[in-house]
Computed example of a mutant assay.
Amino acid sequence: MTLHEFGVLLLSLLTAIGGQFFLKAGALKLGKANAGNAVAHVLAIVTTPELMVGLALYGLSAVLYILLLTRVKLSVVGPAVSISYIFSVLMGYFIFKESIPFNRLIGLALIACGVVLVVWKE
């Protein structure tokens, strides 16, 4: 992977992570969905700015990912994108005050090791 390709990967990851942040922030504004308010929640999505920003960032992330796939092997880029899982958990902990159980930390460490092994050049 060239430096340019790595930059596109990083930008794709950052936009996806930003999308997750805004989707979570918007979901918190909506409150809990249930069978009685599901339709209202779906309609409220288009009027919640955080959700629209989150969707736009996810769309941009997908476009960048597609452009990256034209140049880099899926067997490298696919697993490399899983690094966003680590940032999702950290964002949940630091921003949304979610707990991180020990077994989840072990899982995150394994993901990080796996990504390193997949993108490692011999």
Rank of each mutant, 00 (worst) to 15 (best):
M1D: 02
G78N: 13
I95H: 09
L11P: 03
S99L: 13
A62R: 12
L108H: 10
L67M: 14
L10T: 15
G107Y: 08
V63S: 11
V46R: 10
L108A: 11
L51N: 00
L10A: 14
I111E: 02
N34C: 12
L55N: 05
G92F: 04
V76T: 13
S82K: 05
G36F: 10
G19E: 06
A56F: 13
W120H: 13
E5G: 10
L105R: 09
Y65E: 07
V63H: 12
A33W: 00
I83P: 00
V72F: 03
G31V: 05
E98R: 12
A33S: 10
L105Y: 08
L11Y: 03
G19K: 04
G26R: 04
I86S: 04
G92V: 06
A35K: 14
S75Y: 09
I111R: 02
L105S: 14
V76I: 15
L68N: 00
L43W: 03
L90K: 10
M52R: 09
F102Q: 11
E50G: 01
Y65P: 00
V89H: 05
L105H: 06
E98Y: 10
V116G: 04
L60C: 10
A80S: 13
V72L: 04
K24D: 01
N34W: 10
N37S: 09
Q20E: 08
A56V: 11
L23F: 01
I45R: 03
S88I: 07
C113L: 15
N34P: 09
L110F: 13
A62F: 14
V53K: 03
F94P: 07
S88G: 11
G92E: 05
G54M: 08
L51V: 02
G114S: 13
N103R: 13
A35D: 09
L14Q: 00
M1V: 07
I45F: 11
A44Y: 02
A56H: 03
L64D: 02
K32T: 08
F96K: 06
F94I: 13
